[in-house]
Design a protein around this nucleic acid. Sequence first.
DNA 1: ACGATTACTGTGAGCGCTCACATGCCTAGC
DNA 2: GCTAGGCATGTGAGCGCTCACAGTAATCGT
Lengths: 327, 327
Amino acid sequence: MTDVAVYAGVSHQTVSRVLNDSPLVKEETRAKVLAAIELLGYRRNNAARMLATQRSGRIGMVSAHLILHGPSRIATAVQEAGHQAGYEVSLVSLPEFSADSLSRAVDRLLDEAVEALVVAVAHPAAREITRALRTPIPIVLAQGVVPGQSMAAGIDQVAGAVAATEHLLDLGHTHVAHVTGPLDWVEAGQRRDGWQLAHERRHLLPGPEVTGDWSPASGYAAGQRLVADPSVTAVFVANDDMALGVLRAFHEHGRRVPDDVSVVGFDDIPEAAYFWPPLTTVNQPFSLLGRRAMELTLQALEGESEAVATLLLPELRARASTGPAPS
Amino acid sequence: MTDVAVYAGVSHQTVSRVLNDSPLVKEETRAKVLAAIELLGYRRNNAARMLATQRSGRIGMVSAHLILHGPSRIATAVQEAGHQAGYEVSLVSLPEFSADSLSRAVDRLLDEAVEALVVAVAHPAAREITRALRTPIPIVLAQGVVPGQSMAAGIDQVAGAVAATEHLLDLGHTHVAHVTGPLDWVEAGQRRDGWQLAHERRHLLPGPEVTGDWSPASGYAAGQRLVADPSVTAVFVANDDMALGVLRAFHEHGRRVPDDVSVVGFDDIPEAAYFWPPLTTVNQPFSLLGRRAMELTLQALEGESEAVATLLLPELRARASTGPAPS
DNA sequence: ACGATTACTGTGAGCGCTCACATGCCTAGC
DNA sequence: GCTAGGCATGTGAGCGCTCACAGTAATCGT
């Protein structure tokens, strides 16, 4: 920086002003400085800047299972929203779901002097752990959100599951089976709750429940068990990947979809519309969620009072995999 | 840090030594310092450390289309390998494929003082742009790699495409149709080359070629065009997502897979084995690629001579979507 | 024509750490 | 008993930037 200053014939402070777009620098001087910067290939040293300003301009995000559709969409959306707000977003992904690995990830981010933390980990323990953190920075949850929680943005999983289940009940099915996700995920539990709630509201007994792990393979295994039960005419599967496995199991056993059995998924992955048959599913507004989470973060950063959780509404996408109950 | 030093009754330098695991500090003193750190909730200021050491311990990665399977797998693998080597990995994703957006992403990373750059962008221009960069840091390519290139790790797309095509020719098909990816992706071109090469080697004429954009929707559109051609008994599709669309188009037109027509995909996404029928496809060793790219990066960081590109071999996974040519 | 304002630019300290070096202490060797 | 050498610790400078403040020159009003 001194080099630039000398070359442009000004003081280091003037160079600093040019770099920070200060309005109090003469156009002519600015041009000289800019030219010197260009010529010398100068880049401002961010570490020094951070040290002097006591700010990092960085927001930390911790996420898990980035290979899955939902988490990866959320991470992308948060990152983009952060960039737009002029922040750098550091993403650390958890190798596994342990308290230990979470706190190591947070540690890592704290070392980078992040000014806020967005936690998108669907494990119920995530809430407690992050709450127990003794740091003054704002923490926003973007997954595994329960209603009424403060500083959190989520998608209403219960509402989505109710919509999916009701869609099937409306078609005349008397009960709906359910393939759950791993129940240590907040979302998996909430989708299961919604499925039960929809039955309760109509005074119906829910169909059988099988637990999966989000993977197509687990859906396939679940499907094979459901095939054995002839009373099952409708299945609500907790995500699209597992629904794919369920569809395959039904195909293999000659059960036609939707003639013999209807299937609904969750997530609306890009592939879902091209399954055979095209999958009725629940679309989640991930991009919106990312933006909302970032809004909350920025508000907190500006010292606004703690906002309450926002729950966004997912939306049913009816396709060919669901039809009236067989008579 | 001074606070800690005072509290522990030592000098700031001793605290620094404890923080850096220096062996020249007495066990007793170390314990005192550690206690003071714990009590005061002290965290070392990384910005100051970077400023003093002139090192950032950070590797930059630029990637595009993180929603797609391949790119996201590569990014995850690189990040993990970097962490294991004690580096922080900053990932910036490109909103689009322009030279401008690439150089902005690189700028962003250079601002963070990254010590090396991993570029995983499949666009041919990426190579030129990064090469033209006037920075002394090592740059490693992890996608869009052509053989013989230096400082790059890639997966041999041509070999994969040859394997896929030959698998079909071996089954007695006299020619294979091809659904390409967007041809401004290096990988899409290379898979197309491999498809042609396999035909040439057997002195056969390749079947029709349709261009897609990686999405299931584009695969579906391509499938509808291929259905119209009764001579098409085998299709090599440049990725699994498009293959899904192709399968659906065939289903809709009553063409049985694999009895009437065989389909091969590329990528081996987790869903592929559960398509209907299960999709024969080409598995790419993404995790290995990520590790390899990081190895190259670390070598370059240690000042080793420029290594030549590594090309990893993908592997055909034969499943039920391919069968003998109809007689 | 003078001080009061405005517009721009310069000065020096300090952010929190590590580096190179200086110092003090203890043990071993003769 | 004295010194050479190793171990443990302390000292001060400086990394590259921004902040608060102190100039200096040009402009204005009366």
